Amino acid sequence: ETFPLDVLVNTAAEDLPRGVDPSRKENFLSDEDFKAVFGMTRSAFANLPLWKQQNLKKEKGLF
């Protein structure tokens, strides 16, 4: 299941849709939104070091 970017960005855990893991908001973006937000594919993002993934998520309001 995916959700629009505005539902996930800068949203407190208690305000997220049911079933969304607040530590993994990026997994609930569509592939198109994911690429638009991070400028890379999911596989490229997954290959980044964890610290870099976290920094990007913070920068984009998805942490």
Rank of each mutant, 00 (worst) to 15 (best):
T11W: 09
S43G: 12
Q53G: 00
P22N: 05
V9K: 11
P22E: 08
L5Q: 05
E26K: 02
L48F: 03
F28Y: 15
D15H: 11
K58V: 11
W51C: 13
F38P: 00
K25L: 15
K57E: 05
A46S: 12
A36F: 13
K35A: 14
N10H: 10
N55L: 14
L62I: 10
V20K: 04
F38K: 00
L16V: 06
A46V: 10
G39M: 07
T11G: 13
L16F: 07
K35P: 01
S30P: 02
G61C: 09
D6S: 13
P4N: 06
Q53Y: 00
A12G: 09
N27E: 14
F38A: 00
T41Y: 02
F63D: 15
P4M: 03
S23E: 14
A13G: 10
K52L: 13
A44K: 09
A46T: 10
E59H: 07
T11Q: 09
V37Q: 02
K58Q: 10
L16I: 06
F63S: 15
T2H: 11
K25F: 06
P4C: 07
K52V: 14
D31N: 07
D6V: 09
S43M: 14
E32F: 09
K57S: 02
E32H: 10
G61N: 06
Q54N: 14
N27D: 15
A13T: 14
T2C: 10
L50D: 09
D33S: 06
D15A: 10
P49S: 05
F34G: 00
L29K: 01
T2M: 09
W51A: 09
G61L: 06
P22H: 08
A36C: 11
E59G: 04
N55Y: 13
D33A: 07
F45T: 00
P22C: 08
D6C: 12
A36P: 00
E59Q: 10
L5G: 04
W51Y: 10
K60P: 00
K52G: 05
A12T: 11
K58D: 07
V7M: 14
P17F: 02
T41S: 13
L8M: 06
N47Q: 13
A44W: 04
R18P: 15
N55R: 13
L48Q: 02
V9S: 07
K58M: 11
F3L: 13
V37A: 08
K52R: 12
P17G: 06
D31W: 02
A12I: 09
P17C: 08
F45C: 01
E26Q: 06
S23A: 14
P17R: 04
L29P: 01
A36N: 12
S30H: 03
D6N: 13
F3P: 03
L8E: 04
A46K: 12
L16A: 04
K58Y: 10
L56T: 02
F45R: 00
L5M: 11
D21M: 05
F45D: 00
K25Y: 06
L62M: 09
R18V: 14
N27T: 10
F3I: 07
T41M: 07
S23Q: 14
N10G: 11
A36I: 13
N55F: 11
T41L: 07
R42M: 05
P49V: 01
S23K: 14
K52C: 13
W51Q: 08
F45I: 00
A36E: 13
D15P: 06
L29E: 02
G61R: 02
T41N: 10
Q53N: 00
P22G: 06
T11P: 06
P4F: 03
K60F: 07
M40V: 03
V20L: 08
A12Q: 10
A12D: 10
N10A: 09
N47M: 14
L29I: 08
D31P: 07
M40Q: 01
L29W: 03
K35D: 11
G39R: 05
A36K: 13
M40C: 06
F38I: 02
A46P: 00
R24Q: 10
N27S: 09
K58R: 13
R24G: 07
T41H: 07
T11M: 12
D31E: 11
F3H: 08
A13C: 15
Q54G: 07
N10C: 13
K35W: 15
V7W: 12
D15C: 14
L56Q: 01
F34I: 01
E59F: 06
R24Y: 12
E1V: 15
T41V: 07
V7G: 05
E32P: 07
L8H: 03
F63H: 15
G39N: 14
F38E: 00
A44Y: 08
K35Q: 14
M40G: 00
L48Y: 02
F28T: 04
N55G: 11
P49L: 01
S30D: 07
K52M: 14
E32A: 13
E26P: 03
F45V: 00
A46G: 11
K57L: 11
D6Q: 09
E14I: 11
N10I: 07
D15K: 12
D15S: 10
V20Y: 05
D21F: 04
K60T: 08
F28W: 14
L5V: 09
L50G: 09
E1L: 15
A46N: 13
S23I: 11
N10R: 11
L8K: 04
V9L: 12
S30M: 02
K35T: 12
L48T: 01
W51D: 11
D31I: 05
G39T: 02
A46E: 12
P17W: 03
Q54W: 11
P22M: 05
A44P: 00
M40I: 07
R18W: 08
S23D: 14
E14M: 05
L56D: 01
F28C: 08
T11V: 14
D15V: 08
F28E: 07
R24N: 10
E14W: 01
W51I: 10
K58C: 14
L56S: 01
A36D: 11
D15Q: 11
V7A: 08
A13L: 14
L48S: 01
T11L: 10
T2R: 09
W51K: 08
R24F: 14
G19Q: 09
Q53W: 00
G19Y: 08
K25D: 05
R18Y: 09
D21Y: 03
S43N: 11
K60I: 06
K25M: 15
S30K: 03
K35G: 07
L62E: 03
S30G: 05
A46W: 08
K25Q: 06
L62V: 06
N27G: 06
F3C: 08
F34D: 00
T2Q: 08
P4V: 03
T41R: 02
G39S: 07
L29D: 02
F28N: 07
Q54C: 14
V37Y: 03
L62F: 13
F3M: 06
T2I: 10
F45W: 06
A36R: 12
P4H: 04
G61P: 02
L16R: 03
V20M: 06
N55V: 13
L8W: 02
G39L: 07
L62R: 03
Q54A: 13
K35I: 14
V7P: 03
G19A: 10
S43Y: 12
P49R: 01
M40D: 00
E1N: 12
K35S: 12
P17Y: 02
P4G: 06
F28L: 07
F34C: 01
K58H: 09
F45L: 01
P4L: 05
Q53V: 01
S43K: 12
G19L: 08
P17L: 05
K52N: 07
A12N: 13
E59N: 06
V20I: 10
A13H: 12
F34Q: 00
W51V: 10
T2N: 06
V37W: 02
F63I: 14
K57F: 06
A44D: 14
G39C: 09
E59D: 10
T11A: 12
K52Y: 12
G19N: 10
P17M: 05
L50A: 12
F38Y: 02
K52S: 10
L50T: 10
D15W: 07
F38T: 01
L50Q: 12
P4I: 04
E59S: 09
D33W: 06
E1G: 12
L8T: 04
E26S: 03
K52D: 13
V7F: 15
F34T: 00
L50W: 10
V20E: 04
T11C: 12
T41C: 08
S23M: 15
V9F: 06
N10Q: 10
A44L: 08
Q54F: 11
P22D: 06
R42C: 03
K35Y: 15
A13P: 15
V37D: 00
S43C: 14
L5E: 02
E59W: 06
F28I: 03
E14F: 01
E59C: 11
E26T: 03
N27A: 15
F28A: 08
V20A: 05
E14K: 15
T41G: 08
D6Y: 10
D31R: 02
S30V: 02
E26Y: 02
T2V: 11
W51T: 09
P17A: 05
N55D: 14
R42T: 02
Q54R: 11
G19H: 10
L29N: 01
E59Y: 05
D33K: 04
L8V: 04
E1K: 13
